[in-house]
């Protein structure tokens, strides 16, 4: 039992260390990698739980990656899990940044570094869009008109109108409250 718990903590720590060291770009990038690891590979979380955690991480203060690590850590191994996941998330950027800030001039002007980073941008976009397609198909499969409408509206709001993400999440939550109220009235089926 004790050994199993230690193994879980170690896997949690190393997974976050690995993900955090290799994910460039904003919070959604790291959340996508976390889904691949914890949902598809380790089966520690369901896809819905990961999406719930993403919404919570996104709408709470602080870095999204750290927030997501806290949520996954608590869920899989309690307080110790939270500590292991956060440590794994925070260590790589601290170490990498310390090294880079010493060699900043060399690093920033290096043509080869720039080429590698530019190539990686294509990879990041592919990883994110691959996950979006899988997740989007699951929303379509549910055949729930309201959910499809929320997805399209949220996309338009962020992509075309550049509305702050926090407002989008609040509006989607409000739709959920209304839906719960409608269902309790026993009226329209969602």
């Amino acid at each position: 039992m004790e050994r199993k718990k230690n193994r879980t903590l170690w896997t949690l720590f190393t997974s976050m260390l690995y993900i955090s060291a290799f994910t460039f770009g904003g919070g959604f990038v790291i959340v996508t990698f976390m889904k691949r690891k914890f949902v598809d590979e380790l089966h520690w979380l369901s896809e819905n739980e990961m999406l719930d955690m993403t919404a919570l991480a996104q709408s709470s203060p602080g870095p999204i990656a750290v927030n997501a690590a806290i949520l996954v850590g608590w869920k899989t191994a309690g307080f110790a899990g939270m500590a292991a996941a956060v440590l794994g998330t925070v260590l790589p950027p601290m170490i990498i940044l310390s090294i880079v800030s010493v060699f900043y001039q060399l690093f920033a002007e290096n043509r080869y570094v720039a080429l590698v980073l530019r190539g990686m941008q294509s990879g990041v976009a592919a990883v994110i869009l691959d996950a979006s397609v899988s997740l989007g198909l699951n929303v379509l499969k549910d055949r729930q008109g309201v959910h499809l409408a929320v997805m399209l509206a949220a996309f338009a709001a962020t992509f075309f109108f550049r509305i702050n993400v926090v407002w989008i999440i609040l509006c989607a939550a409000a739709v959920g409250v209304v839906m719960a109220w409608v269902q309790r009235k026993g009226g329209v089926k969602a």
Partner: peptide, 21 residues
């Protein structure tokens, strides 16, 4: 109910981040 409405919104946010990239 709130969580099940949030999920499609999160999917849209992830997709928009990807398309912007």
């Amino acid at each position: 109910s709130v969580l099940s409405s949030l999920r499609p919104a999160v999917v849209a946010l992830i997709a928009a981040a990807g398309i912007n990239m």
